[in-house]
Amino acid sequence: MQYALAIDTKRCIGCNTCAVACKIENNLPDTMWWNRVLTVGGDHTDTPQGSFPHLSMSYITLSCQHCKNPACTKVCPVGATYKDSETGIVMQDYKKCIGCRYCMAACPYNGVRNFNWREPEYTFDFSQGSEDVPSLVKGTVSKCILCNHRVKKGLEPACVAACPERARTFGDIDDPNSAISKLLASRSNYQLLDEKGTNPSVRFLS
């Protein structure tokens, strides 16, 4: 089994609803984002490439790619980041993590992992989102785990359920009969940095 995301770049409007859903559901501290929206175009958010009026612009979202062949798990000296054998989700165990950040260096995708240099700081004095998410720990690495706490209950990750454009599809890409497998079979799609050989489970429908 390999849980995966298919992100339809034709439908994605860069609205950031998925990013905010992730942040709140997982009670992420101030300034931390596990899922971000990037403009494919100019140098800044919402700017296109080309020169007026010959322009193009689209959006992708970037979070842990839950690679089939992850670089991060191989370099973790303590098994804190590991591939869950049942779901294929690349997990992160704060209890085991020693804060060496080898995983961050090995991961080819920039900014999908976060290191807690300090005690996590929160604007609000109560926990937001689900009460099932583990608290973040100073000196450890965290990232998207596909809302494992929801997936265990048969729910979709928060980013998928919140997407107003139905641009995100979640499911098992090892099951050829799953909705995501059928979708991928019917549409051209690509992986980010596929040349790195990590075989990401996040696919972008183009």
Binding site: D8, T9, K10, L38, V40, I60, L62, P108, Y109, N110, L155, E156, V160, A161, C163, R166, T169, A179, L183, S186, R187, S188, Y190, L192, L193, D194, E195, F204, L205, S206
Partner: peptide, 22 residues
């Protein structure tokens, strides 16, 4: 990563039905 996505963009077939979301 961003540059890679642009280069990889291919032709798409329209998908006619919205996927049900839970």
């Amino acid at each position: 990563a961003t540059a890679g996505t642009c280069a990889a963009a291919g032709v798409c077939q329209p998908q006619l039905k919205a996927l049900a979301v839970d």
